[in-house]
Nucleic acid binder design. Structure first.
Lengths: 107, 107
DNA sequence: TGCCTATATGAACAGTTGTTCAGATACGGT
DNA sequence: ACCGTATCTGAACAACTGTTCATATAGGCA
């Protein structure tokens, strides 16, 4: 068993991934940096909710910001989170295939 | 972007992993099935809190129960969760090495 | 300077979550 | 049947979380 500190950090990371809105934001960011308004639109959140969510992700250094004029470009900055997202999404795709499309034809 | 249903399911799984107590329970279960009292002791939770946590994990089919007399043996029953735990723990170990023990000697 | 746009923030609120405490259920041993 | 032990459950409660609404900051442009 990892020590208490590591378990708490891990639980924290999972906590960041556990909100659907925040999760959608991170999934969008897997494709590369995005502006706040674009993230909001892609994730189906209000711009305020998006800004609040990004603030939390920033505080945990999961995302980084690049400012250009009045725009703010956010990007995924945490390799651990990126890895977990990749694994999770790969599994989702795989499960969908074997459970819903047993013959492998999805489209 | 996966559809809304899949994102919600994913967020749900991450939510299960996001509580330190529940996370410790699942980490212990990685090693094989355990009785409730043993899980409680290993995770540092009261037996009541453990039972409540296991109830939630059972409801989400993350764990399964094998009953033998008055004992209940719990086991990890979800491959997705097991995979995420493996990845997360591997990364924790790796990060600890490169951040805290750059020369690779951990003990 | 004044206006518009992009993003950030604070307060308030509702909904959710994990814990504890007390008690219930159920099995095994005697 | 009785007792002790293992597990489960429900109610109550405090703590936390995400959203909205209103407002603030701040850059670009006329």
């Amino acid at each position: 068993m990892p020590d208490e500190r590591e378990v708490a950090d891990l639980a924290d990371v999972f906590g960041l991934l556990s909100d659907p809105g925040r999760l959608r934001l991170m999934v969008v960011l897997l494709d590369g940096e995005r502006r706040v308004a674009d993230l909001a639109a892609a994730a189906g959140l209000s711009e305020s909710a998006t800004s609040h969510a990004l603030r939390i992700l920033r505080a945990h250094r999961v995302v980084s910001v690049r400012r250009a004029g009045r725009m703010a470009y956010y990007a995924l900055a945490d390799a651990h989170v990126r890895l977990l997202l990749d694994v999770a999404l790969a599994h989702v795709a795989h499960s969908e295939m074997i459970h819903d499309h047993p013959d492998g034809r999805v489209g």
